[in-house]
């Protein structure tokens, strides 16, 4: 039985923001009279995570994923609720606690902007008190895996978005943290870099037993990395369970987009539902329980002169809607 390393109970976060309408007059008005709006970022969030787990935290924009990560990493004071990570209360024991975790915020700057990434790595060695003997080979291995041996020598400000992301990932894992939070780690990465990143995460999980909590919009990330998924919407946990189950229950359908150069006309196939048909562009939803994707595609290939064909998972929002509908029943 693996150890429980994260415990969250009834985590609630409410904060005040100021509402302002657009326009110059309203901007001036707001100087004197601001309307305070309470925003409920998290409402009663509870879950636990065990050692060695890789958990995907997903949900639409503004659902509360980042807020959860911030509360877990000790940056945010929650309004109420209990949080225990690795035996610490993150925001209370911040300085002691952050030594044991790694955090990557996809949209935040986390490396010394004016220095080569390699300098940040070296500085972090002292900051996290990693002995040189352990640090050097580990750095070498990580840099090789992420393929950043050369870019790490250029100042961070001159790096591309993807290079910077890889360096951030390296910096977050150098001190061998027990738990790593990744907030949108695949932003700005191309397909190859995404693969590298995923392999790297899986490797750290297997070798060092590092646990990961990943938020992302990329269902591919989730499929590759996570065995367990927590879906958050409007600050509430709507689903917490194995990915397999989600796939079985809610991702039975695939979306196929077909583009043709000549008018498509009618389309009919077993297990397919036409979502839209704009003469040249066709979108169909395929129920994979009733028919195989392969069959549908070969049917299209035989009978239509298509220019483009894309197969997608339905968007996460749809999955959430389905879960809602089911709960109401």
């Amino acid at each position: 039985m693996a150890k429980e390393i994260v415990t969250i109970k009834n985590l609630t976060k409410t904060y005040k923001t100021h509402e302002r309408k657009a326009g110059l007059m309203n901007a001036i008005k707001s100087l004197f009279n601001r309307k305070v709006v309470l925003k409920h970022a998290l409402k009663d969030v509870s879950f636990t995570i065990k050692e060695g787990e890789v958990v995907g935290l997903i949900g639409p924009n503004g659902a509360g994923k980042s807020t959860t990560i911030k509360a877990l990493s000790g940056v945010l004071h929650p309004t109420s609720g209990v949080v225990r990570v690795l035996g610490y209360v993150p925001w209370k024991h911040r300085v002691k606690y952050v030594k044991h975790i790694g955090v990557v915020f996809g949209q935040k700057q986390q490396l010394w902007w004016d220095l080569p990434a390699i300098d940040t790595f070296d500085l972090n060695r002292d900051m996290y008190e990693v002995p040189e003997k352990i640090f050097r080979p580990r750095l070498k291995r990580i840099m090789k895996m992420l393929d950043i041996e050369e870019v790490a020598k250029t100042p961070v400000r001159d790096m591309s978005l993807g290079e910077r992301m890889k360096c951030k990932l390296a910096a977050a894992l150098l001190h061998k943290p027990k738990l790593v939070f990744l907030d949108e780690p695949s932003i700005g990465l191309d397909v190859i870099a995404k693969d590298i990143m995923r392999d790297f995460i899986i490797d750290a999980n297997k070798k060092d037993k590092t646990s990961f909590i990943v938020t992302t919009h990329d269902m591919q990330d989730i499929e590759h990395l996570c065995e367990r998924v927590i879906i958050i919407n409007h600050g509430v946990v709507v689903w917490d369970g194995p990915l397999k189950e989600i796939k079985k229950k809610y991702l039975k359908n695939k979306i196929i987009d077909v583009k043709c150069e000549s008018p498509i006309g009618k389309f009919r196939h077993k297990g397919c539902k036409i979502v839209s048909n704009d003469k040249y562009e066709l979108r169909i939803e395929v129920d994979t329980m009733k028919t195989k994707i392969k069959e549908v595609v070969s049917h299209i290939m035989k009978n239509y002169e298509f220019a483009d064909l894309v197969i997608n998972d339905p968007p996460i929002e749809e999955v959430i809607q389905k879960i809602y509908r089911e709960k109401k029943k």
Binding site: K70, G74, V95, V98, K108
Partner: peptide
């Protein structure tokens, strides 16, 4: 201004 105070709160130092 650039929203990266977080960077410093994630370091094990005051």
């Amino acid at each position: 201004v650039h929203g990266n105070v977080i960077q410093f709160f994630l370091k094990p130092i005051s």
